[in-house]
């Protein structure tokens, strides 16, 4: 019996390792090619770099300087951090107001937010871009406002769900003690919301960091472009000549920060994504 069981376990492990190899192979292949010289990338993408095909960190230097990668990286970081901060702060306040001030108006507003979660981006793509330009929001600061508007649906929905489960009495006690609603919210309510705030932050960060179409339409491919836009421009030859080595290095540079972030905050990310899926 025992030997049969260990045979089964061996089979499962073999299967799992094979699957893991399949899952990691694409990333591994990109890593390999990022240290190969141009000719060998398109000619033999699956060969191991050695001798004359090995290019060292040359590709990374090119990828970094040619396409002004650093600028795009910083743009993405700036937009993601401040949009997520704004979303967490503003939508948690909004959700608390909507739940606590019950009335027909707040109900309508709530359902508008929920409705916006369903509508695909293509529906508002053209008109939204027009208003962004008309109102002068087509820059790194303005796009944050747009992201707050787009992130509001899911975020208000998730915060509201949690706030409904918090007993009112705690807040009422704070009010009786003389706290204004603003003080009550930041000293009493927001600390309780922390787990949901982490989930909301992770979901929005992943979306905004990887988002392509919105920043492409609003910010374009100029100086304020984000990382996905820079990658797309470079790989479709938007900057003139295609330098395959530099492009592979760019792909690696685009993935590495996400993977590092993932390995450190894995627990929160997986929890957040599952919570978002079940509620959304």
């Amino acid at each position: 019996m025992k030997s049969k069981r260990s045979a089964v376990n061996f089979l499962i492990y073999t299967l799992l390792f094979a699957l893991a190899a399949v899952f990691l192979a694409p990333i591994f292949i990109i890593l390999l090619n990022s240290v190969k010289s141009n000719f060998y990338i398109s000619d033999s993408p699956f060969s191991i770099p050695s001798g004359e095909s090995f290019a060292g960190i040359q590709n990374f230097i090119k990828g970094f300087t040619q396409s002004d990668f650093l600028q795009a990286f910083l743009n993405s970081a700036f937009i993601t951090v401040f949009s997520v901060g704004g979303i967490v702060l503003l939508t948690s306040m909004t959700a608390w107001y909507i739940v606590r001030v019950s009335g027909r108006l707040t109900k309508i507003i709530y359902y508008l937010f929920v409705f916006s979660m369903i509508v695909p981006f293509q529906m508002v793509m053209y008109t939204m871009t027009y208003y962004a330009f008309e109102l002068g929001l087509n820059n790194r600061l303005g796009i944050i406002l747009i992201y707050i508007g787009f992130g509001a649906g899911l975020s208000v929905f998730m915060f509201s769900g949690f706030i409904k489960s918090i007993p009112k009495e705690i807040e009422e006690a704070a009010t009786i003690d003389g706290c204004s609603p603003i003080k009550t919210f930041f000293l009493v309510v927001f600390p309780i919301l922390k787990p949901t705030a982490i989930t909301v932050a992770i979901l929005n960060a992943m979306w905004i960091w990887n988002d392509y179409l919105l920043p492409y339409l609003v910010l374009g491919s100029g100086k304020s472009r984000t990382l996905p836009v820079a990658v797309q421009m470079a790989l479709t030859g938007g900057y003139g000549n295609k330098d395959m080595g530099a492009l592979m290095a760019m792909l690696v540079l685009a993935i590495v920060p996400i993977i590092i972030f993932y390995l450190f905050c894995q627990k929160y990310i997986i929890k957040g994504v599952v919570a978002g899926a079940v509620k959304g």
Partner: peptide
């Protein structure tokens, strides 16, 4: 922001 980016 919701009105500017989505509703309108």
């Amino acid at each position: 922001s919701f009105a500017i980016s989505f509703l309108v």
